[in-house]
Amino acid sequence: MNLWIGRPGALREIQDKADSFDRSPALEVQEFRALSGAVTTWAPPVQPRRLTLRWTAMERDDFTHLDRLARRVDGPGPVAVLDPLSRNWLTAAQAAGTGSTGMWERNANEITLSGGTTPYSPVTVSVDAPPPAGAVLTWVIPRWRYYPVAPGTTLTWWTPSLAAAKAPLAGGYLYWYRADNTYLGAVAGSGTRPLVTTVPPGAAFARPGVAFTAKGSWPLGESVLAPGDLSTELLDGERPPGEGTPAYSITDYQHVAAADARYRDIGLDLVEVA
């Protein structure tokens, strides 16, 4: 999978591989030294991720797409970047099943979440008398609520910790939504194995979830949503530390026009926005 970039519903795959790809967070730690020599430091509570991308050459159509994004021709909104190097689109806390319970949504009063009092506290899911269709729990992100996707690409979704705990699942689900957030459809897996599927035409977002069919309580534990077929790797017990799927704003952009069909020396700088 190459890098995809754009607004949800209008993502484009950039065919040329970037020559450099730096996604280091901006720590912005400031150091203060007292007259005594003692040192204190200050850091902002949020360390946004920055992307610095550089290409030596790019096809004209791909360049035109980036040019429109950088100049905000189609609106000022943030852009999504589907990073081919990302191991898990879920946040670090979601992937580990820890932290604030606001990172999950419930479809019924019969399902509750507890714990998450600190960033490292495990979250427990409890189900009391699930409805006939099942008690559904879904994973969400702040900016778009659902996860941006590109039609035709392959995704893997699984909750290995719930499977290992033998939680009574009707299956793992991926719910598809259009760019205007209207519901498009869903695909279901067994819950005991990773769900590997292709994003359907018209889908701009995916909403991962599971449906419980019996009462009980289980640690939420690990989960993974990532591009490609990861079934073998996940069944071997590998992954799922999360890296998140940030929304980005383009902060700098450079290029050198060429006489032929390709553009030269393209640079794009982006910063994560809330």
Rank of each mutant, 00 (worst) to 15 (best):
T251M: 08
A80N: 10
D128E: 11
H255R: 15
G9Y: 01
E28Y: 03
P200L: 05
E233F: 00
P132H: 10
G237Q: 05
L51H: 03
S249P: 02
V210S: 05
E272F: 08
G216L: 03
Y263C: 11
R239D: 00
G191S: 10
G228E: 03
D229F: 06
P142A: 11
V29P: 01
G77A: 12
W104N: 02
I250V: 07
P130K: 11
Y175I: 03
L66N: 11
A165Q: 13
T41V: 09
S20R: 15
D22H: 13
A258L: 14
V136K: 07
S20F: 14
A18E: 12
P200K: 12
V149I: 10
T64K: 10
R54H: 15
V81P: 01
G77F: 07
M1A: 10
A203L: 07
A259H: 10
A179Y: 06
I5C: 06
P227N: 07
S217F: 01
N107S: 11
W4Y: 13
D260Y: 13
I266L: 11
L235Q: 12
W42E: 13
P8K: 09
T154E: 11
M58K: 06
Q15K: 08
A257D: 15
S36T: 15
D236E: 15
P119E: 03
G102A: 15
R49L: 05
R23E: 05
E238L: 14
A261I: 07
A261F: 06
P208M: 11
L51P: 02
V187W: 02
P246N: 08
A129P: 00
I5V: 13
L35V: 13
V271Y: 04
R7D: 07
P241G: 05
P142K: 14
A186M: 10
L235W: 00
K215W: 08
P84H: 05
S36P: 09
T232L: 15
A204N: 06
W176K: 01
P151N: 12
T101I: 15
F63V: 07
T52N: 13
A247G: 11
L53T: 14
S217Q: 09
P45S: 13
A93V: 00
A34I: 03
D236V: 02
W104T: 05
T117Q: 09
G116E: 01
G115V: 08
D83I: 03
T124M: 13
N2R: 11
A38Y: 13
P219R: 12
M1W: 01
W139T: 06
L137G: 05
G202Q: 10
F21I: 00
G75P: 09
W157A: 12
L184S: 10
A18D: 04
A93T: 05
G185E: 03
A92L: 08
A186S: 15
P45Y: 08
S100V: 09
